[in-house]
Design a protein around this nucleic acid. Structure first.
Lengths: 144, 144
DNA sequence: TCATTCTTGAGTGTTTTACTTGGTTATTAT
DNA sequence: ATAATAACCAAGTAAAACACTCAAGAATGA
């Protein structure tokens, strides 16, 4: 399970762009100032966000980053995955060899939890966060 | 967000006890062998599980650990919390000062996610896992 | 009494995290 | 041209966390 500052910073930075995209390309220096994130660290994150196709870039004066598709089309999960954070809680990563070649006793539990988190992150878009829609989320967990 | 081997080991060990509790007290050596977890590491984890009131212990031959209440009454969340793993994803831990005294843009999102995970872990008991009930979990996330 | 088992505290190598440093390359405005 | 801007890139690093090990001690039962 990896959900740390890296993923948080990436999401925060993407929200910043989404909020300001009407002003054209957004520079990392601006994001750095506004969100209190180190510029060099942002560069590393945006290298990955670009490779994942979530943002496009332009160099030189007037340059910066833009979302490469609408904020509705980018999920929080997309961003987290782009910066290499994994939501998989299982030691084996799904290989089911957690205990000397065998599935550990809690394997299915972690599978369920990973799925729950994954589903949550995929269900929320950048636009939802900009609109503060995630504050009204209703969660329901049932056993069959 | 902290969900690592520590929490996984603790849950796996507790499942082991739940599965074998009819045989009386379970020694850490047995759990260590069966689950492939270092004995000394288990000792540390059980020190915390005992402090949290989830297990009781007896020394000497025939001794070992028992669940201090029924497996139905122990949630996975109880175990995770007992070994000091936090499910809170927010940098500020809820203080809402993630960005220089202010809430960061993604604050509410992490609050929602933390709540989702917390709810999941609280809803599943040790007995559910022993019965493999978590494999049939149905997840539903709606926006209001 | 002796083996067993929990109990406790300290130490340790490895990995990860969250950066920093120091550049280079492309683009634009003057 | 040239200077400023801003993305791009590679490497290094201090501190923390992780997943243990090691060593000793104390209670218990056969």
């Amino acid at each position: 399970m990896k959900l740390t500052s890296k993923g948080r910073y990436a999401v925060t930075a993407m929200i910043d762009i989404a909020l300001n995209q009407d002003k054209g390309a957004i520079t990392l220096s601006l994001i750095s100032e506004r969100q209190g994130i180190s510029l060099s660290y942002l560069e590393q994150l945006f290298s990955k966000l670009k490779k994942a196709g979530l943002v496009s870039s332009a160099r030189g004066p007037g340059g910066g980053y833009r979302l490469s598709r609408s904020a509705n089309g980018i999920s929080i999960g997309d961003i987290i995955h782009a910066v290499d954070e994994s939501v998989d809680i299982r030691k084996c990563g799904g290989a089911a060899n957690c205990n000397g070649g065998e599935e550990c006793l809690s394997h299915e539990l972690w599978t369920s939890l990973s799925f729950t988190i994954e589903t949550f992150l995929k269900s929320i878009t950048l636009q939802d966060v900009v609109d503060n829609k995630e504050t009204n989320v209703i969660k329901q967990v049932n056993f069959g």
